[in-house]
Computed example of a mutant assay.
Amino acid sequence: MTLLVEARKSYGLTQRELAARLGKPPSFVAKIEVGERRVDVVEFIAISRAIGVPDDGLLADLAATLPGDLSI
């Protein structure tokens, strides 16, 4: 997920540091960042908080990248 990678890097965190803040192994962060693992909303908020980004800021950035019609 490019948005999370950019946020993590802009806050000067390594994958290992973010993983430690989340209480997860570094592979957890790596899999998310390369798209091997999806995150749900609760995980997204936890990651956002661990990075130090305001919850609504990163979520708003994500929403802005999505198409208007999100048919599933």
Rank of each mutant, 00 (worst) to 15 (best):
V34H: 06
T2V: 09
A60Y: 15
G35A: 10
A46R: 12
L58M: 12
G35D: 02
E6Y: 11
D56F: 08
P67N: 11
T2P: 09
D69L: 12
M1I: 05
R38K: 12
L70N: 12
D56L: 07
P26I: 02
K31G: 05
R8M: 03
A50L: 11
A19M: 10
T14V: 09
L4S: 08
Q15W: 04
G23Y: 11
F28H: 09
D61V: 12
Y11N: 06
E17C: 05
E36P: 00
Q15Y: 07
R16V: 10
K9D: 10
V41P: 07
L22G: 00
V39T: 12
P67C: 04
S10M: 10
P54L: 07
L4I: 15
A19P: 05
L13P: 03
L66D: 00
I72D: 12
T14R: 02
P26N: 05
S10A: 13
V42Q: 09
V42Y: 14
T65V: 08
K24R: 14
G35S: 07
L66Q: 08
I72A: 05
R21T: 02
V5P: 01
F44T: 07
A60W: 15
R16P: 04
E6W: 13
L13Y: 13
L3G: 06
R37V: 07
I51P: 04
L66S: 01
M1L: 12
A30E: 07
P54D: 01
V53Y: 02
V29P: 00
E6G: 14
L66W: 14
I51K: 05
A50R: 00
Y11C: 04
V39N: 03
A46T: 04
L22K: 01
V42F: 12
E6C: 09
A50Y: 01
S71P: 01
I45L: 08
S27E: 02
V34Y: 14
R8Q: 02
V53D: 05
G35I: 14
A46M: 11
D56G: 01
P26V: 03
D61H: 12
S27Y: 00
S27K: 02
E36Y: 11
L18M: 13
S48G: 14
